[in-house]
Amino acid sequence: MVMSHDDVFETVGRPLLSDGRIKISCRNVNVYYGNKHAIKDVSVDIAEKEVTAFIGPSGCGKSTFLRCINRMNDTIKDCRFEGNITIDGENIYDKNMDPVLLRARIGMVFQKPNPFPKSIYKNVAYGPSIHGLARNKSELDEIVITSLERAGLFNEVKDQLDHPGTSLSGGQQQRLCIARAISVHPEIILMDEPCSALDPIATAKIEELIDELRQNYTIIIVTHSMQQAARVSQRTAFFHLGSLVEVDDTNTIFVNPEHKLTQDYITGRYG
């Protein structure tokens, strides 16, 4: 299959939601890195308190799109954004929208576990203390402990809160990063291939955690692994060469994809 980079696909499936569960809605999003057209006219709705998975071959723009949602692309030079993204109806690219405030509402977990070279306690306390969420030490303690508990890490580290975060195992580090992300009580958590650096057991734990977190948070997860998408997500979006090819309930995508490309990708014919 030969395709030029300028092909834009019409999104098939159910990109837009009609019920009242819309948390994030993206309309006609285009992103350019210098001359490169990285995201091409993507429109999609993300449902509240649900896990949405972004899948697709590498370089398809799914991470770039994810980083649009908390405006992390702002920090990258010659990255240009066009279009419209709203959270609870609020345009996040509005002039009055503060990126700091936005990011306090949206947690992010990265591909490689990136705990700060500080103690476990300080890693989790970092967010609350920069935002001034705790009035005193005991409030901060409480936030740290709840966050660690929610990330399913507290029991493993409760005796070594003053040890450096980097001393933990890979899976523990990633859960520490999740604890750090939820310490400021975000509404949305973005996960950029959170398990790609982990072994299967650690991956299983994280997936379990994601399933639990969905009770309280809207989660978007970018993943390479279709199995993972199938296991943890309720909705799945398939990206290809910067276009959003197909979005639908995970079951539909995996059992009965509409687009030929999606089908080829799911069945492992390329990717």
């Binding site: 700091v100 306090a104 009580h185 509404e187």
Partner: peptide, 20 residues
């Protein structure tokens, strides 16, 4: 989302905003 939690979300954002 229940009422109490919504409130606390709003409160939290207000708190953060006040320090911005």
């Amino acid at each position: 989302m229940n009422r109490a939690e919504l409130n606390s979300h709003e409160d939290r954002l207000q708190l953060i905003k006040s320090k911005l």
